[in-house]
Design a protein around this nucleic acid. Structure first.
Lengths: 217, 217
DNA sequence: AGATGATTAAAACAATTGTTTTCAACAGGC
DNA sequence: GCCTGTTGAAAACAATTGTTTTAATCATCT
């Protein structure tokens, strides 16, 4: 069949595999997480993974890229919004910092916690495949952030800006490790946790802002 | 034999395995790095690993703990030195920042680059064993850093101090990823690279100091 | 020299890995 | 109604994993 009406059958197996793979990879890593772990978690047969995706590598690629996209979009959107709001003037450093921090914290503490975990695993670049994906996907966003920071901090060299931007990302990611255990469906999240995340965002923004606009050397 | 004279035989095989394991684990991770990878790199037999260490897990533990110790010692020593030099007054924030940054950069760019790589892999805590080791080994040092920062920044709550300290560590580690490829035995290191590392240290200290002493919220 | 125990080498082990095969169930188009 | 191609389950595949076994080699002490 040409898959004319993917109404009821499509979201089932394939989506279950993708969701289960994300969790398994986050918990055990890309290499240690086996396809059988995933099939068990998704309650599907072993062959299903090689049927829907051609191999484990392809599954990794699709899971990873699919998970990354919303994060990229959120950060990109936050950056644009921050520029738009201050236009025609340039945004303040703290606003740029918040555009960097808030999406990461909110997504990393919520629905996309597993993706963040994977992102951090990948940073040391054991798997060339995932390293390449990260660089491809995040490259443009990083460049735009550094470009904007360069305008805001004309006294700093571009390499110094890039290093400070790296520091900022590292600070946020390190904080995410210890962050509240997500639970996007927890009922209590509307109160306690969101408040905590708001405080975390404020604190991170303060740290990152101060670091970014430190006097040049 | 009771190994009375470990002169010539001891440093051979066992040390070769440890060194090879460190490299393999840094390149491929604890789970993906196989004992056969290690035996090949160390030019020893497969059984040697289970002879000298009882299992792969034990090898991981020993390699990891042995690698961590010099790092802990360096950071601990730098902190003490920084306190001693300013005594009886309290050290400046920038001095504390340097005590945090310099050992990590110098070790992480030199002989202990592989350990640093492993340290970053471990941060997401897939392997409970390694996570426990990190917490055990680094716990005391972290506490002393936070204690000192608390005295220097009495207006901040302890949780805020802890978060900023986390940010600082994250900033340094993130920078280490992109750092010069080590090569502890390279001849040219005495000039070009050491200068670069010195500049990196200065820049990191500036970023971290500014972040640490940002105004409270 | 002979004996003892440490060390290494080669082969085999059972378990687990990713992947393939085989076959059954099911849908819609001719 | 038969046939198409998609979906799914069970079993088997070859390769690789950590580990063990077996036997040979080596050094040292008596």
């Amino acid at each position: 069949m040409k898959r004319v009406a993917p109404a009821a059958s499509e979201p089932d197996t394939r989506e279950r595999i993708l969701a289960a793979a994300l969790t398994v990879f986050a918990e055990r890593g890309f290499e240690a997480g086996t396809v059988r772990d995933i099939t068990e978690a998704a309650r599907v047969n072993t062959a299903a993974i090689n049927y829907y995706f051609r191999s484990k590598d392809e599954l990794i690629r699709q899971v990873f890229e699919a998970g990354l996209k919303p994060i990229i979009r959120a950060r990109s959107g936050a950056l644009e919004a921050c520029i738009r709001q201050s236009a025609p003037a340039l945004p303040k450093i703290s606003a740029v910092a918040e555009a960097l921090v808030r999406p990461l914290v909110e997504l990393g503490a919520g629905e996309y916690r597993d993706v963040m975990t994977i992102l951090m695993q990948v940073r040391t670049g054991q798997l060339p495949l995932t390293k390449r994906i990260v660089e491809e996907q995040f490259g443009p966003v990083h460049e735009r952030f550094v470009d904007l920071l360069q305008k805001l901090l004309p006294d700093l060299s571009r390499t110094e800006i890039a290093l400070r931007y790296d520091c900022a990302r590292g600070a946020v990611l390190q904080t995410l490790v210890h962050l509240a255990p997500a639970s996007a469906l927890a009922v209590a999240e509307t109160d306690r946790e969101r408040v905590d995340h708001e405080k975390t965002v404020r604190r991170l923004v303060r740290f990152v802002s101060a670091g970014l606009e430190a006097p040049p050397g």
